[in-house]
């Protein structure tokens, strides 16, 4: 992340260590992940140990220390989605794209993530691809959702 952008974020929170979580969220919003150099700079600027930032970024599931793919697929694993078959969706995507949940395909096209619940239970089981919700899914319907991605490959 370039220094100017980072400074804007740090200044927004008056460089207070208590705002670390918010600062990391803003960085991730910009960069899609937390780049190593950037969190080193944050540690230096705020005067907090790098270990503390590492602890935060591994404790909270919304952070990624690795770059994420061009497309992000999130499968809701809430209870309502679970009883309607969400685990089968994850397995299907894992198989189709040969990528384990929580990771990115080697060509950086797709990151597969799971989330505990997005609260859109009426649509369960639910898959979110690049911010767009696809409800009442099953493995066969998933292929249609992913067709545009498959074509590009």
């Amino acid at each position: 992340m370039d220094a100017k952008k980072l400074n804007t974020i740090l200044d927004k929170y008056r460089r207070e260590p208590s705002a670390l979580l918010a600062i990391l969220q803003d960085i991730q919003d910009e960069e899609n992940y937390l780049p190593k150099d950037t969190i080193r700079q944050v540690a230096g600027e705020l005067g907090v140990p790098l270990a503390r930032i590492y602890a935060l970024s591994t404790f909270f599931s919304s952070f990624s220390l690795e770059p994420r793919g061009k497309h992000i697929c999130t499968v809701c694993m809430g209870t309502a989605c679970h009883v309607r078959g969400a685990p089968r969706l994850v397995e299907h995507i894992e198989r189709e794209f040969d990528v384990p949940a929580g990771q990115t395909t080697p060509d950086m096209q797709l990151t597969l993530e799971t989330v505990n619940c997005v609260g859109a239970c009426a649509l369960g089981p639910l898959v979110i691809l690049d911010g767009e919700y696809h409800g009442n899914m099953n493995p066969a319907k998933l292929d249609r959702v992913f067709r545009p991605l498959k074509k590009k490959e």
């Binding site: 670390l20 918010a22 969220q25 935060l56 404790f59 599931s61 919304s62």
Partner: peptide, 25 residues
């Protein structure tokens, strides 16, 4: 407004407060 980071345990009151302070919840 403080945004959480996707940790279920932060719904617990003391964990939530620790998280507002900028630490692991």
């Amino acid at each position: 407004i403080n945004r959480g980071g996707g940790a279920f345990v932060c719904g617990e009151s003391t964990a939530l407060m620790t998280s507002i302070e900028g630490f692991v919840g």
